[in-house]
Design a protein around this nucleic acid. Structure first.
Length: 326
RNA sequence: CCGCCCUUAGCUCAGACUGGUAGAGCAGUCGACUGUAGAUCGACUUGCCCCCCGUUCAAAUCGGGGAGGGCGGACCA
């Protein structure tokens, strides 16, 4: 796979393609980042962007993980103390998951976001951004409560972070696109350069297959799930034997294979009793999806296999989490 | 500061006028059917009725106080 394909594989959107191609032409030492509100336990949503970071590391880029403690604070996630605690746990889990510790710079937001220069730039952004615009940028990120002033500051800070962390590429879920677009529009007015952005897809809810809505809490698989819990969750997932279920629904089982399993494993083996045809082996998502579609691969077997591989992905983080918690 | 509205199941809400310790839809759980899930049937669970004080034999409901949330307070319409 060439560098451009590696950098952009499984991306839902790239802004702009020209800029990313330019990056791909000479990726060594270029800096890419994702910002996360600290959370004590990583879930599949975190791991989706982490997979992209691993791709980028493989392409030779430097990775910056922003542990966005100030953002979490502005978003009402607790006291600074609590937030920093969870940030440490988060960092350990990322490393356990597979981010190369010596190729990854973990930065706390509070380490630079409270500096004078940053604050003055922030105020300048406040001066030139309408509340309407800031609020719309946050709509996908904040809860559905009435917006607070802090919620309007939040996306402005994200825009500035991209400059202050000296980045070459901003990565995030598709829910971050409006914030990133805000940054592309506003940074040049402060005399800074807008950076290219890469957005990962939003995976559909496991049990319902509904993907488009920004529903907050469905069933998700996380680092603290036991093997049994994981099997149970995967088994209860929505999985019609097709890539394109009716309506706006997606097939979450296939999505997890595509975005979580195949990027991290070269070969996926489906262990299947002789009665159903014996074992199968896949080297690409496409062939697996095609077999599910044709009926060659039964959803129940796909689920069992998915659970096995997800469990393997999660195991190191789960172990780390247990160590941390004693 | 002034005014109006809201607060009942996980969610959206009904019930309040005409007091008798609570309901619907959705969600969820469990079975049946499918070699998965869903759909479809069948069954089931769920509550400091925002808090305090008062009236009453009896308060989600009436009276008083308080808390939290929402909206409005130039002109035009």
């Amino acid at each position: 796979m060439d560098t451009y394909d590696l950098i952009t594989r499984n991306a839902a959107e790239v802004v702009t393609d020209e800029e990313v191609r330019e990056l791909a032409a000479d990726p060594a030492g270029k800096r890419a980042y994702v910002g996360y509100e600290p959370s004590g336990v990583l879930h599949l949503g975190h791991l989706l962007t982490a997979n992209k970071l691993i791709d980028l590391q493989e392409a030779g880029m430097e990775i910056v993980v922003l542990l966005a403690d100030v953002h979490a604070y502005l978003n009402g996630k607790g006291t600074f103390e609590e937030i920093r605690d969870t940030a440490e746990q988060m960092q350990a889990q990322f490393v356990a998951y597979g981010l190369e510790a010596d190729q990854t710079e973990f930065v706390y937001g509070s380490a630079f976001q409270l500096e004078d220069d940053y604050t003055l730039d922030l105020h300048e952004l406040e001066l030139s951004t309408t509340m309407n615009r800031a609020q719309r940028a946050m709509a996908e990120i904040a809860g559905d409560e009435t917006a607070k002033v802090s919620h309007l500051v939040y996306p402005l800070m994200q825009s500035l972070d991209i400059e202050y962390l000296d980045l070459d590429l901003a990565v995030g879920g598709l829910d971050q696109r409006k914030v990133h677009m805000l940054h592309r529009e506003e940074l040049p007015d402060l005399g800074y350069e807008a950076r290219p952005c890469l957005h990962t897809p939003i995976v559909a809810d496991l049990t319902s297959g509904e993907g488009k809505m920004s529903s907050s809490e469905g069933v998700t698989i996380s680092m603290e799930d036991s093997t049994e819990q994981l099997e149970e969750k995967v088994n209860s997932a929505f999985c019609p034997p097709t890539r394109e279920p009716e309506g706006d629904l997606e097939n979450p089982v296939l999505e997890l294979f595509e975005y979580h399993v195949f990027p991290r494993f070269d070969e996926v083996v489906v262990e299947r009793p002789e009665k159903y045809g014996g074992d199968l082996s896949y080297e690409s998502y496409e062939t697996l999806a095609a077999d599910l579609e044709s009926g060659e691969l039964h959803p129940a077997d796909a689920k069992g296999t998915l659970a096995t591989y997800l469990d393997e992905l999660i195991a190191p983080g789960r172990k780390k989490l247990r160590e941390i918690r004693g």
